[in-house]
Write a protein that binds this DNA or RNA. Structure first.
Length: 424
RNA sequence: GGAGAGAUGGCAGAGUGGUCGAAUGCGGCGGUCUCGAAAACCGUUGUUCGCUUUCCGGCGGACCGGGGGUUCGAAUCCCCCUCUCUCCGCCA
């Protein structure tokens, strides 16, 4: 959520920046400014009436104490109109605040000044790429065939138990999955992140705090009976650890990592995008979350990108890093880098990580602040996060790229975790 | 799931209708003392919105788990919700 102050003081700038995200915000912004003025007016009036009422009430107390019953009764008459006025004004005030809030939460975050304009993923900019050279071998099996051949991932079985998009990992496939999770967590811990295991369901307040609600309501699984949402990413529970928290500057940077399964309804997806492991309703992911001082958040973002890069390098995957254009960025992000790895049998790039700076957009919703050492005022902190990494597409690429006639080779860094060098 | 108790400032803990944003203790910050520190003593110490102010600040509103109600007036009384604790039941 953008702050009112930002919109009030930089109206044209806000509209201009939101246009980069293909969002025509003029109407909303103008409505917000209008409602803000109205809100102030109502607050002023109601404050004055309340102050008057408080004075009279105090006087009544004193009169009663000193036994002046008559005058007390007279004073009570005065409050009748005052009460009616304050009731009306506070009602108008809260109605206006509600309207204001409703529009405010529909505005996406402003893109950072370096974000390129663009409509879709086609306009994203390749920042750099690396990893082993892509082979042009035509005889490679896609991972869904490999999964069946070695009996390591069973899509049909998951379909039977739950439905499409809920695979069952079996034997070496399961161990491989668990190894990746452990590897990613151990790497994160080495890089200074503190591991947490958060709840996999969250309440609506948490969903709102990180920006999933109300914007992406239909993308999350919802437990109506208890009013909980299944988490679409560990970002939600982990960032919400800091909801309503005031940090000290010396606490920065706060670095957390968590493994969680992620649940996404993925309504509207179809075709080759959802084949095999490409898009699932339940998948595993290790996430990194950082709470940072605003003045360091962009340096921190680069650090996180470098960290995620070190992971794909260690796994020997061909990768590229994209800076997302305005049109492809999420609602909450100010700047996002995507990581894609090349899947050699599918001959396409698969997104395996997304690293973002949300600046104060989530913090404003979360009321996540820090005490400024100089001014002693509470200021909004910056939040950042990234996938490090999401498993299924990493698994897809590893299976496809490492297939040999003898079986699938396990990357060296994972062998200590799997205990085997080959899936055969 | 049943019965009872409770939710107050960073923490502990008073406050059951009237200058209570809230005693007191601890902690934090500033100072005196000291070569320095500790102790002692003195002072200070919540958030948020609005108005005002060249800075310092000043004035007003709201906030004692959340929401609603009674009353001229609510931390205090009533109702609903959430959560915590104790006992019982169940249970990985």
């Amino acid at each position: 959520m953008l702050t009112l102050k930002l919109i009030r003081d930089n109206k044209e700038f806000v509209i201009e920046r939101l246009a980069i995200k293909n969002n025509n915000a003029r109407t909303s912004v103008e409505k917000i400014i209008e409602l803000d003025k109205l809100r102030k007016s109502f607050q002023n009036q109601s404050d004055n009436k309340l102050a008057e009422l408080n004075k009279v009430s105090q006087k009544i107390g004193q009169l009663i104490k000193s036994g002046q019953k008559e005058q007390a009764e007279q004073a009570k008459q005065v409050t009748i109109n005052l009460k009616e006025d304050t009731r009306r004004l506070t009602q108008q005030l809260s109605d206006t605040e509600k309207q204001l809030q409703e529009i405010l939460i529909t505005l996406p975050n402003l893109p950072h000044s370096s974000v390129p304009s663009g409509k879709s993923a086609k306009d994203n900019i390749i920042v750099r790429s690396g990893g082993p050279k892509i082979t042009e071998n035509e005889n490679m099996l896609p991972h869904w065939d490999l999964a069946k051949k070695y009996d390591i991932i069973d899509f049909d079985l998951g379909n039977k138990i739950t439905g499409t998009g809920f695979p069952v990992y079996k034997g070496k496939g399961a161990k491989f999955q668990r190894s990746l999770i452990s590897f990613f967590l151990d790497e994160a811990i080495k890089a200074g992140f503190r591991e947490v295991i958060p709840p996999f369901m969250v309440n609506p307040d948490s969903g709102f705090g990180t920006g999933q609600l109300p914007d992406k309501d239909g993308q999350m699984y919802y437990i109506t009976f208890d009013n909980f949402y299944l988490i679409p990413t560990a970002e939600v529970p982990v960032t919400n650890i800091f909801r309503d928290v005031v940090l000290n500057e010396s606490d920065f940077p706060v670095k957390y990592t968590a493994y969680t399964p992620c649940f996404r309804r993925e309504a509207g997806s179809y075709g080759k995008d959802v084949r095999g492991l490409n898009r699932l309703h339940q998948f595993d992911k290790v996430e990194i979350v950082v709470i940072e001082n605003p003045k360091n958040s962009y340096t921190q973002l680069e650090t996180m990108v470098n960290y995620v890069e070190s992971l794909v390098v260690k796994l020997c995957l061909p990768y590229r890093i994209l800076k997302l254009c305005g049109g492809d960025m999420s609602f909450t992000s100010a700047l996002t880098y995507d990581f894609e790895v090349y899947s050699e049998a599918q001959k396409r790039w698969l997104e395996v990580s997304s690293v973002s700076n949300f600046e104060s957009f989530q913090a404003n919703r979360l009321k996540l602040r820090y005490k400024d050492e100089v001014t002693k005022k509470n200021q909004l902190a910056h939040t950042l996060n990234g996938s490090a990494l999401a498993l299924p597409r990493v698994v897809a690429a590893l299976l496809e790229n490492n297939q040999t006639v003898n079986g699938i080779k396990i990357p060296d860094v994972l062998v200590p975790y799997t205990g085997f060098k080959l899936i055969d």
